[in-house]
Nucleic acid binder design. Structure first.
Length: 909
DNA sequence: GCAAGGTC
């Protein structure tokens, strides 16, 4: 019996063939595609002798596409894409693989499917079935289920073949169809609506600019915009904290206030004064604890991308490209995996053994293998398993290859060191916490000594800040060296880093491990977002405007919810709880309703775009062609429909949907006030059908002997329409110029009250710049850009010199109080408006100085915001006027004192 | 010219 075996990728075909044949009498020959070889050997399945042929596809063999009539953008209304017929086709670049399968399948009796054991794999299995059974109806179809490319699994799978799972494949069919229909309809709609209506300077050639919408790319953009809005709308709030330090022979200890910080200055000062008056500190608690810092879980794709971004500033897209090359060359395992736990059957020691000769980490590998070192520890289980691939690990030793770039070296090193760390003991630290009491107020200090670095010895990318604390004993008393009341302001969160963004996508289920980096890249390619020099993402005006437009419509299309609902439905289909047809119908019905509604509310998108972009003077503008009532098939291009439209200026025309390729248009008289296509057909015009249009003319603009209501035909037979066109002119810009004497620039025409409908309210009588609807109210969580723009700018940032915006605080303590702040996140400058009148010109992070003397506690304490520190006879300074950043704090994520948590390089891992 | 998912 001849058995055709098909795997999802060439590497799996090779492994399966090599395992099943035991490399005995294994022959390889070329297929039609250069990547997909054919392996042949003999094997026996359940005692039945078989001649095995093993080959592969490369992922999906087929693509879903619309039928020809719906593929040209202007040939149909995008709303039709929710119902237009679709078909699965093998694209040009996969035809070679298809032919190989057909040729081999003809001579086989069985087809065994070795696709990955996930939903996409099952769907690819059915694509292979379709191609193979088309040439050989007699094939027996069997599915091999395996969870790893190891001998036992592969032999088990082939001896226990099952049936392919249609439910799994159906779920993917549904996902594909929904993605295509939603993506194509919204992309065409918003591109045609906005691209030519505004001057979008980000694109060099905006004729090619595509304003795409996709159920993954838009939520990804949503994360970026949401964080940006959070930063923009942040109102800095001033807070106060008491810090204390003590210098002894052993060094300096910095104590933090147990209360953290106060937003109320008066309360903070009262407590501070109490402390200053009785400054003697008493040690109330000394606690010593052992702390462990565990090595990370085994490496999966998302962690690889996140860590390469943080450690090497590599983009996720570039990381995957380099990883793919290392994989192809055999140095690392398959890089697209969700799995972060090793199977018990993996020979971890063998992988370590291979690395013993490396000059950088070889000696660590040797120590690991020495049982006497006690360094070995079985790796953690990260809790994810895609059942198809192991965690990313080194598969071949290398001390660097000649063709490798710096990034190849770095990524290979990360994979190896990560693996060695995973099988190592955690780092051990001894932590000491000391609590002191000053006048009833509690303060604490902590220090850490690393007792055993263990995995940190090899995993040089992570650190565990250590700092020594002088020895204290309970009951010990001392007078602090400094005791200061310090001020700070709350800061907004930072822009999203690539690691943050991957984290958001992972959490909300946007994309897969193999596609997340594509979605991020798409934001950059589409000019929706930019990445700054510190690898953080900001939305562009275009990205922000699109999200703002949909947000104003009340649609959460830019949120991850839609994808989450789809994902739940897909799961239901894969479990057989819902049918593919049922899910497709409900989902597409809802999305079509949403689409039609979005089109009705397109003014919201216009408004949002108008906040950032100038209107374009380009004649036409595709938005006029985005929808309209069918009148006739175009006689000129004979490809698209002619539809009734109203242009921006309110003039009617019947234009071809093939614009701009086809420019066939019938302009209607400028005196038409209303027009609607009827169901009546013209009896004389050819080629038919040509639907008649019911017109209403403005009485004062047509001669008295003409009727204001007229049922007319645009096919050429209608004499009345022809005469009125001659008399009144048409709404076309060329015609308007002709009638109006000397040609006027388009923007002048737009401000003409008769022709220029306001872009905001679509009414005439005022220009867009004076629209009464634009005295904007507050916008949900977004920054109030209008208010900011119209704010009285009268003060400059002390750090960067840029003019500050006047804002209004909305916090509990300062509601309604006005303040100026720098719009740059980096400066953090702000000043209360009322304090300017008092002579204070802004504070930023400046410390406020409150002085007192330890030797004379009864002396009055200065509250002044400009007082200087005082030194007593014994040289004990309680205050600092240096403006230094608050010291003695450490990052609560990694414990490193060199930065705070919001700037921690380990944040988001 | 549109999506997202495989993979080379």
């Amino acid at each position: 019996m001849r058995v055709l075996n098909v795997a999802e990728k060439p590497s799996v075909a090779k492994s399966v063939a090599s395992i099943l044949s035991g490399n005995q009498n294994l022959r390889m020959r070329e297929g039609r595609s250069r990547y997909n070889k054919i392996y042949e050997f003999n094997y026996s399945i359940n005692g039945l002798p078989c001649h095995m042929l093993v080959t592969s596809v490369t992922g999906h063999l087929m693509e879903l596409e619309f039928e020809d009539r719906f593929r040209k953008w202007h040939a149909c209304d995008p709303a039709l894409l929710f119902t237009a017929p679709v078909r699965k086709v093998v694209p040009q670049d996969k035809l070679d693989i298809k032919r190989t399968l057909e040729e081999v399948a003809r001579g086989c009796q069985w087809l065994v499917l070795w696709l990955d054991c996930d939903r996409e794999g099952e769907n690819i299995a059915f694509e292979v079935i379709e191609v193979c059974t088309a040439v050989n109806r007699q094939l027996t179809l069997r599915r091999a289920r395996f969870s790893a490319l190891i001998e036992r699994d592969i032999h088990d799978a082939v001896q226990n073949l099952v049936n392919p799972n249609k439910y799994f494949a159906d779920a993917v069919d549904a996902r594909q169809e929904i993605d295509l229909r939603i993506g194509a309809s919204f992309t065409r709609f918003q591109t045609m609506l906005l691209r030519d209506a505004f001057v979008i300077e980000s694109a060099t050639n905006d004729r090619n600019l595509v304003l795409s919408y996709g159920p993954c790319q838009f939520p990804t953009l949503g994360f970026v915009v949401e964080r940006y809005w959070e930063i923009q709308s942040h109102e800095p709030e001033e807070f106060w904290t008491i810090n204390c330090s003590h210098r002894s022979d052993e060094g300096v200890a910095t104590f933090n206030w147990m209360r953290g910080h106060f937003f109320d200055y008066a309360c903070a000062v009262i407590i501070y004064e109490m402390c200053v008056e009785e400054p003697t500190a008493t040690v109330t608690k000394v606690r010593q604890q052992e702390k462990l810092k565990y090595a990370p879980a085994p490496l999966n794709t998302i962690q690889l991308e996140k860590r390469a971004s943080i450690y090497f500033r590599m983009s996720s897209e570039h990381t995957m490209k380099v990883a793919e090359e290392l994989y192809q060359a055999g140095f690392i395992s398959y890089p697209r995996t969700e799995t972060d736990s090793f199977s018990e059957r993996t020979n971890l020691h063998a992988i370590v053994q291979e690395q013993q000769g490396h000059p950088g980490w070889g000696s660590y590998a040797q120590r690991l293998l020495d049982p006497a070192s006690g360094l070995w520890r079985n790796p953690r289980n990260g809790g994810h398993d895609d059942k198809a691939h192991p965690p990313i690990h080194p598969t071949k030793f290398s001390s660097g290859e000649s063709g490798w770039s710096q990034d190849h070296h770095r990524l290979y090193e990360l994979v190896v060191r990560h693996f060695l760390a995973c099988v190592s003991q955690p780092a051990v630290g001894a932590e000491t916490t000391v609590e002191i009491d000053i006048a009833g107020e509690l303060f604490f200090a902590s220090g850490r000594v690393i007792v055993a670095k263990n995995y940190l010895d090899v995993y040089r990318f992570e650190s565990w800040g250590g700092s020594l604390l002088p020895t204290y004993e309970v009951g010990q008393q001392f007078v602090p060296t400094t005791l200061t009341l310090d001020s700070g302001v709350t800061r907004p969160p930072p822009l999203l880093s690539e690691a943050d963004l991957l984290g958001c996508m992972d959490k909300e289920g946007i994309g897969t491990d193999a596609t997340m980096h594509d979605h991020i890249k798409k934001l950059l390619d589409r000019f929706y977002a930019t990445k700054d020099s510190s690898m953080r993402f900001s939305p562009t005006n275009l990205g922000e405007a699109l999200v703002m437009g949909y947000d104003d419509m009340g649609y959460k299309l830019w949120k991850p919810y839609l994808r989450a609902v789809m994902e739940r439905d897909m799961k239901a289909v894969s479990e057989g709880a819902k049918s593919k047809a049922e899910v497709l119908e409900t989902c597409l019905q809802q999305m079509k309703a949403c689409f039609l509604d979005a089109r009705l509310n397109k003014v919201k998108l216009f408004e949002a775009m108008a906040v950032f972009f100038e209107r374009s003077n380009r004649a036409g503008g595709d938005e006029q062609h985005a929808s309209g009532e069918f009148v006739r098939r175009c006689g000129l291009c004979q490809e698209a429909d002619m539809v009734l439209r109203q242009n921006r200026d309110g003039n009617f025309m019947v234009g071809c949907l093939g614009f701009p390729q086809c420019r066939n248009v019938v302009w209607l008289p400028g005196s038409v006030s209303e027009a609607a296509v009827t169901t009546n057909l013209c009896n004389s015009c050819n080629p038919g059908p040509v639907y008649l249009i019911q017109f209403t003319f403005r009485r004062l603009e047509i001669p008295p002997d003409y009727n204001a209501n007229h049922l007319g035909c645009i096919g050429g037979c209608d004499e009345t329409l022809r005469r009125l066109t001659e008399i009144c002119g048409t709404g076309s810009r060329l015609s308007a110029r002709g009638r109006g004497g000397p040609a006027m620039p388009n923007n002048v025409q737009r401000s003409n009250t008769r022709q220029g409908a306001c872009i905001y309210c679509h009414q005439t009588g005022h220009s867009s710049g004076n629209c009464p609807s634009q005295s904007s109210g507050p916008r949900s969580s977004r920054p109030q850009s209008m208010n900011v723009q119209s704010g009285q700018v009268s003060i400059s940032c002390s750090a960067c010199g840029a003019p500050c915006a006047l804002r209004t605080a909305n916090t509990t303590t300062n509601r309604g109080r006005k303040f100026y702040s720098c719009q740059s996140q980096a400066c953090n400058f702000f000043v209360w408006e009322d304090s300017i009148n008092n002579g204070n010109r802004g504070r930023g992070f400046q410390r406020v100085n409150v002085s007192a003397s330890a030797s004379n506690p009864s002396r009055s304490v200065g509250h002044g915001r400009g007082g200087r520190g005082a030194v007593d006879a014994a040289g004990v300074t309680f205050v600092s006027a240096t403006g230094d950043p608050i010291s003695g704090r450490r990052c609560f994520v990694c414990g490193d004192p060199s930065h705070f948590a919001n700037a921690c390089p380990n944040r988001g891992i």
